[in-house]
Amino acid sequence: MDPVALFTLQLLNALSLSALLFFIALGLTLIFGIMRVINFAHGAIYMLGAYVGVTTQTLTGSFALSLVLAPLAAALLGLAFERSALTRLYAREHSAFLLVTFGLALALTEAIRLAWGPDPRQAELPAALAGIVFVLDEPFPVYRLVLIGAGAAAALALWLLLHRTRLGLLMRAASQNAAMTAALGNDVAAVRAAVFALACGLAALGGALAAPLFTAYIGLGTSVIIDAFVIVMIGGMGSFVGTAVGSLLVGFAQTFGNFYFPELALGATYALMIAVLLLRPGGLFGREE
């Protein structure tokens, strides 16, 4: 195969992986930015999105509907969890938050195992998305291009939310000084709840988008949450731009690492993280606190 074509295909593969990672890392970083805590349940929410997506598609035959219902279900679950459990924990030690969200991750994983059984689930892509296109005379799955577009659209939508809406303004203000945001008449608790629901919805959308490629299986959440943590560390905790750049770096490191140095592939992501953190301990776009 022509090396230029080969490289181009790997580039597109890397971008599509970056797009999927972006959905989950973005939610983590939004939550961290405004609540200063890590949501350990985020991988399980992503996995839930994959299962709900597959089931929606199996029952209704509509892939588009699965991309609506999966994030909606996860956002509602996230909202209920934030309002009932997390809202009491913000004033406490961070370890309480970590333990409770870790507990949610375990409970959710078991609930999924009970509801869907231990076997992986997969749904077929609709015909329009299942085809291939030719990139530099080489075949390439259309769906991976769709993923790239979805990731770019999500990045744009989030940027617009953050910079063009009142909710976005309050998210940015509260991430810098929550007490002052409240003292100016804004209900920061409501902003937190909205952010948590939004972040869960994004993760589930990522899961539903990933399901046709990777199938939905128990453990999907665990494998992806680690990548998401790495992305957030590389980009800088709480930084939107950092998360976008981090997703790209990790997607590229994994794809190209796998292809050119398969025996070192597992280490590529961590080597990248260590290198970044040595040079900039707060991450590329983060502030040291």
Binding site: R166, L169, A173, Q176, N177, L184
Partner: peptide, 13 residues
């Protein structure tokens, strides 16, 4: 708010 513009600082209120 250090990373908001003056105009955005005002809009928060």
């Amino acid at each position: 708010f250090p990373d908001l513009t003056v105009e955005e600082n005002l809009r928060v209120g």
